[in-house]
Write a protein that binds this DNA or RNA. Structure first.
Ligand SMILES: [Mn+2]
Ligand SMILES: [Mn+2]
Ligand SMILES: [Zn+2]
Ligand SMILES: [Zn+2]
Lengths: 123, 123
DNA sequence: TATTTATATAGTAATCATTCCTATTACTAT
DNA sequence: ATAGTAATAGGAATGATTACTATATAAATA
């Protein structure tokens, strides 16, 4: 895979935030540096970067968000403000339970907990 | 909400399978009974039925699937054949852990475990 | 039962995220 | 510096979902 300024910029943008950005948000940021970058280039490079193991795609409902954090972790999704927070809840036992009980080879466990974050406390 | 033959047919179709069907699959089935039903009617009524608590929407990557099983449960997704299986893994403790540790009010926990099901055993 | 009223539908157009296409650009090995 | 070729920009195409609207049909009423 040949170097490109576009891919490097996109990688840096994803790595610069912990907001799990969408392709369109990344596109907007990338235009500050490369004004005529195209959205197709953003999508193509996000896919490359995923294959290279530099990031992962997570789905927030039906739309894709991108996450530089490759450690196994889960997400809290606030239905009020839409924010996604990283959490470490992964129960190591789940993997072996599933393997034994359902004879299912596990690749990865994706858990999203939907609710209301602490920015919206009623008194 | 006024009765409609379309909504009742759609409800019965969702309740007749445990394959977590897509809107398009439900549309195909519904046409057997109501040949000129439209896809928009399927989507609109699936949304009604969700609001009525008769079914839930789950996202398989970026596409919506519909599930009549309203009990808290998780899913195994086979990346080979694409099937989705119900499993009971819900750890009741997760909810209180999240509430205490992250001060996050939990509505629901959605877990999808991606891997390979037992139909694809190598010997 | 016939009439009325308003809600749901069919059919189609519009939207939105994502992917595809292709002539042009720009890495990089020589 | 040049050639070879992978990556890009820009725009068209796709696929799922939603919006629009004239017509059909529940169902309340006379
Ligand atoms: Mn994350
Ligand atoms: Mn299910
Ligand atoms: Zn919030
Ligand atoms: Zn399978």
């Amino acid at each position: 895979m040949r170097y490109s300024q576009q891919r490097e910029t996109i990688r840096e943008i994803v790595y610069s935030t912990n907001t799990h950005p969408t392709a369109d948000w990344i596109f907007g940021r990338a235009k500050r540096t490369i004004p005529n970058i195209s959205l197709g280039t953003v999508y193509r490079n996000l896919k490359c970067l995923e294959e290279m193991g530099e990031l992962r795609t997570i789905f927030d409902g039906s739309i894709a968000r991108y996450d530089w954090n490759m450690d196994p972790h889960d997400h809290l999704k606030c239905k009020v403000c839409g924010d996604l927070f990283d959490v470490q809840l992964m129960d190591e036992g789940i993997q072996s339970t599933v393997r034994k009980k359902y004879k299912f080879e596990v690749d990865n466990v994706e858990m999203t907990i939907v609710g209301t974050c602490n920015k919206h406390k009623e008194k």
